[in-house]
Design a binder for these strands. Sequence first.
DNA 1: CATGAAACATAGCCTTGGCAATACATGATG
DNA 2: CATCATGTATTGCCAAGGCTATGTTTCATG
Lengths: 153, 153
Amino acid sequence: MTNKDVDSARRGKPATPAEFQVEAFQKCREARRTELMEDYVELIDDLIAQAGEARQTDIARCLGVTQPTVAKMLKRLGDERLVTQRPYRGVFLTEDGKRLASTSRRRHEIVEAFLRKLGVGPEAARNDAEGIEHHVSVETLTAFEHFLRKNPD
Amino acid sequence: MTNKDVDSARRGKPATPAEFQVEAFQKCREARRTELMEDYVELIDDLIAQAGEARQTDIARCLGVTQPTVAKMLKRLGDERLVTQRPYRGVFLTEDGKRLASTSRRRHEIVEAFLRKLGVGPEAARNDAEGIEHHVSVETLTAFEHFLRKNPD
DNA sequence: CATGAAACATAGCCTTGGCAATACATGATG
DNA sequence: CATCATGTATTGCCAAGGCTATGTTTCATG
């Protein structure tokens, strides 16, 4: 939205509090665009660590989607230089991919640990963390960490 | 994924911990499908409360999208019996829409208040709450409320 | 009461992220 | 070494959620 738009809006009628949510909604849409890529990269890193390799069918099984869906996404991740593929030989993370995986996993772990510390059960904590992690700003993540430090086991 | 699939997967290779994230990812995708509808309904309720009416251009301005985008979404909300429209006369919530708006707003307020209580600044709390609210289970929401009661102002 | 600005409707286009169906490659095994 | 289960590639389809461009209604105002 341009400043001109905002100005004309404010002349037109009293600025409602709701109007200032614009930024929040835009950030939300942006997060939705990248969260799937983060999930993939994080999962691929996990699979390589646990099983030594990440195959399309494994990824598909873990995410609960079909293999063609994974193939399409891997193409996109390749375009973004996050993964490389050797046909019929598995998926590998680039350096950028590894970096994204590690920051993503760290955030995920903090969110899940935070929920557990708050008294949320293991299953709900796992499920909710998966959704929440992509919408947590650095500031909020820091607050979660601070809470964890202040409430040791 | 069927049980048969899961079984064959478990026979094929040792079940990795990652495999049990399936449910989390599926819930996440489900949440993504409905979160936009919730945002719209919540916003429409706000606009009606604040300005007496909800016009497409107001909704568009608040969400940071264009008016045709709003029009298309309103058609979908109409199909779902959440809103009614009187052409050139504004948007109104059905009873179902009002219910959804109120539960959605309550959740939103709790999440935002919780983040504020945790020490997160007002802007980050507002932005993050917008993204987080749709991924918070009843259990986690209850934990947030409990925390708020245990830490009064 | 004519008219022009603003709101609304509509059509066409794009990308993302799902799916099923089908063809091809690989490798274990008889 | 032939075969077949499994993994991978590819194609075509769909819905959601954005956009621009353009036509149509309303309504305030001269």
